[in-house]
């Protein structure tokens, strides 16, 4: 199922679902509830969940195909081909797929939120609620507070920037300064 992390709601996200002729479940997650619950910090992110409601693979970049994007002197690689192949393998083989993550690897990757990240999450939700009430000036200070507390969370930045006229410039400025990979390198296979 797809979940638009869009405080702008159907007006912002709907046309993309229509253009994609989506046949799957199409969610409009105005409060970013799914990113909050699954600790997702960018889009696109994917989580695999099995028939019993157990997380098979936690947050990873979930691109549909390989893309090499050269932007601002840097390169973004999406590694989508390998991701989709791994997903198909799991769908076919279930528990015996080599892409079902071990508990040890899962614990290595998934960390509890820090107190600052927990506060950032509460600030972001407050900003969304103020935005929904048309209180943009008050919302602004809480968008910014969330970004200050959790600077690596691209969702917090980009949702806020979408309500300004400078989203592209602000993204480029932060992208240029970021030293880590915009999309962390996929590690689909575990080391034995």
């Amino acid at each position: 199922m797809a979940a638009a992390q869009d405080t702008g709601g159907e007006a912002a996200a709907g046309k993309w679902y229509t253009a994609a002729k989506a046949t799957y479940t199409t969610l409009i997650d105005t409060g970013h509830a799914i990113s909050s619950a699954y600790q997702l910090v960018n889009v696109p992110s994917g989580v695999w969940i099995d028939e019993r409601g157990r997380i098979v693979r936690p947050s990873e970049t979930a691109a549909p195909k390989n893309q090499e994007l050269k932007i601002g002197g840097k390169t973004i690689n999406t590694q989508g081909d390998a991701y989709v192949a791994a997903l198909r393998d799991w769908v076919a083989k279930g528990e015996s797929s080599e892409f079902v993550m071990s508990d040890a690897e899962y614990r290595r990757r998934v960390k509890e939120r820090s107190p600052r990240e927990r506060e950032a999450d509460a600030c972001f939700k407050l900003a969304v609620a103020l935005h929904d009430r048309g209180r943009e000036d008050e919302a602004r200070q809480w968008w910014l507070r969330a970004q200050t507390l959790s600077p690596d969370n691209w969702n917090y930045h980009r949702q806020d920037w979408s309500f300004t006229s400078e989203a592209g410039k602000k993204w480029m400025d932060k992208f240029q300064k970021t030293t880590t990979d915009y999309y962390p390198k996929l590690e689909l296979k575990e080391k034995p």
Binding site: A4, Q5, A13, L40, P44, S45, R158, W161, S162
Partner: peptide, 20 residues
């Protein structure tokens, strides 16, 4: 309203994206 628990018994790819 859609709940994750509505989908028990099926494999799920939960995929986030955004228009921004």
């Amino acid at each position: 309203t859609v709940r994750l628990t509505d989908f028990r018994g099926r494999k799920i790819l939960l995929l986030t994206w955004a228009s921004w």
